[in-house]
Amino acid sequence: MTRESLLNIAVLAGFLAVAIIASLSGQPYLVTLATKAVILGLAGVGLNLALGYGGLVSFGHAAFFGIGGYAAGILASAAQNYEPLMTWPMELAGTTSMPIIWATAVIAAGLIALPIGALSLRTGGVHFIMITLAFAQMIYYFAISWPAYGGEDGLSIYVRNSLGALDTMDPLTFFLIAFALLLLVLALTFMATRARFGLALAMARQNPLRLTSMGVRPFRVRLAAFVLSAMAVALAGALYADLNRFVSPSMLSWQISGELIVLVILGGVGRPLGPVIGAAIFVLLEAWLGHLTDYWQLPLGLVLLLVVLFARGGVIGLLTGRNANA
């Protein structure tokens, strides 16, 4: 077993331990903090599929994070206000059932990511970064100026959505739900990167010409990675909206896209658990620095700068001293 896989197991076990101990010792704030890290980690794992494995620097994944959030917000607020979701062409009611909300979030994000990815992947390099940013901004401004779903004010979810008979308002229960989904997505991405698809994706990043000569079109592999990555991020978005019981256009803002990239790089690009570790560090730094000073983004910026300049390979690279093999 490599040092990296040992570290991975330790990190996941650590998450679980922190949440359970914090819950038993009556510190729900810490449980919520751990839940936030798990959800952001899940989003980072999704982004890493495009960014790390596929080499597609998307600066617009906040769009999918927000779409997931709005899926949760719109379905839940319709159900809670006893208003139909739509009346034409058929009458649809909202729902507070988490699995239906997750499925809606994932499918909606996939459907929107498909044309965005297909158009964006016509370009590369800096153009790709900019056009993904532009699409995200488009959706952001749409959410702000469209009055039906709260516009700039966003939507509140009065009671956290339900999953079977579980008490989702209990911090530890909600943490465990998010954690289970993180494990599921981690397992899926792990399998995907080991499968034919993952190998083709790695080759599309390293040597697209060679992939083409093997009879696989890089465009389709990249598009699949982009769409799958968007779907995972949307799942995280739906959970995030449920965690805060609130969704607003700020979930779609470009700062979120930037923060998601930060998580991935902080932990280590192209490493399975890099984003999870990155998210844990990010949330801890945010909480700790926010406690020390009102101007916590200043030291956060300095830390990030030092990581980029001196700790290539992220924190995992520092700890294990090996290059990512993805």
Binding site: I261, V262, L304, L305
Partner: peptide, 17 residues
């Protein structure tokens, strides 16, 4: 470009704050 995006994102935080 990824490193450039992250480093200049960090610079935004530093300048704004």
């Amino acid at each position: 470009h990824l490193d450039q995006v992250l480093a200049t994102f960090a610079l935004i935080l530093i300048f704004s704050e």
